[in-house]
């Protein structure tokens, strides 16, 4: 398997789709990617760069979507969610309840994948604030195979969506994608406990849990997964650990699981509610927040 970035794989697949489907429109807030250069060269009439202006990125995309285009709005994750949250709320979440629109917000830079760029580029709030909006599907993939599978859904599923992409190239978490629409997958089986993680943390959970009798579940449709199937998967397991690259206890993955799995023993792992200014590798930033590999291994050793 190759190491690839989610956005590169997604955009390459989208580039192909744009050849077949002239209703696809791409809007960037002056944010790029090598494949995006091909998209804008091949489809100058269906690509627009609105400049460093995320509020207008959303509004222009909404206008295009109201007119029937399938729209992809593209920017750095904290900016496409928080700089223009009001535009997303009013013109996407509220308006789409009355007027259907297919609009796909692609944010690159999940969690602390831009670890060196500091707190403005760390994206630790988006899972909770995007999840709280009605009428918006939240997709938090853990590898590029999932992002590739999602391309079809962005076209077929004519609703607003938020796509939270990691910035860093990675190996896939699993060799293939099966039952994609269920919204979660089992990366490792186990019987003593289960880690339910999302995004990069699913990869990390798989790595640290390799030597433990612990199930690892990768949840990638944060508000559109098959809950019944998940409950069946978890039968007989009482101890649940949630793990996310986001602030903990404020409405992210942990809140979703806590509210749905009320009869289990759930421990929530995520970032403490503070910003990290000390730069370093992603693992360094994780360690600063008690989420280093050793921290997680120590925790797993304590699971009886």
């Amino acid at each position: 398997m190759q190491i690839k970035a989610m956005r590169d794989v997604f955009l390459a697949a989208l580039h192909q789709k744009m050849h077949e489907d002239d209703s696809l429109f791409f809007v960037s807030a002056d944010f790029g990617a090598p494949i995006l250069d091909k998209i804008r060269a091949d489809f100058p009439d269906r690509f627009i760069n609105v400049g460093i202006a995320e509020q207008n990125l959303i509004n222009v995309s909404v206008g295009l979507a109201l007119e029937g285009f399938t729209v992809y709005a593209y920017a750095i994750a904290p900016f496409i969610t928080m700089r223009c949250y009001e535009q997303i709320r009013v013109n996407i979440a509220i308006l789409s309840q009355l007027r259907p629109m297919n609009i796909n917000l692609i944010g690159v830079g999940a969690g602390v994948s831009y670890s060196l760029s500091g707190p403005t580029h760390h994206c630790l709030e988006d899972l909770s604030i995007m999840r709280t909006l009605p009428n918006l599907e939240v997709f938090s993939p853990s590898d590029y195979l999932l992002t590739e599978s999602y391309v079809e859904r962005t076209i077929a599923n004519k609703t607003p969506k938020y796509l939270r992409f990691d910035a860093m190239p990675m190996l896939p978490a699993s060799e293939s994608v099966e039952n994609f629409d269920e919204g979660f997958r089992v990366l490792q089986t186990g019987s003593k406990a289960v880690i339910i993680a999302t995004g990069y943390m699913s990869q990390k959970a798989k790595k640290v849990a390799a030597d433990f009798d612990v199930m690892v579940i990768d949840l990638y449709f944060l508000n559109a997964y098959d809950l019944e199937k998940l409950q069946v998967c978890l039968e007989g397991i009482e101890t649940v650990i949630t793990l996310e690259e986001g602030f903990k206890g404020v409405g992210g993955l942990d809140s979703e699981i806590n509210s749905k799995l009320k009869n289990k023993q759930v421990t929530n792992l995520g970032f403490e509610q503070k910003y990290t200014f000390e730069v370093g590798s992603r693992e360094f930033v994780h360690e600063e927040n008690g989420l280093g590999e050793q921290d997680l291994i120590t925790l797993l050793k304590s699971v009886k």
Binding site: F25, I48, Q55, N56, I58, N59, V60, S61, V62, G63, L64, A65, L66, E67, G68, F69, Q87, N91
Partner: peptide
């Protein structure tokens, strides 16, 4: 106005 820009472009 921003939404209308998108509509006009469409």
């Amino acid at each position: 106005l921003g939404v209308a820009c998108g509509i006009a472009l469409a």
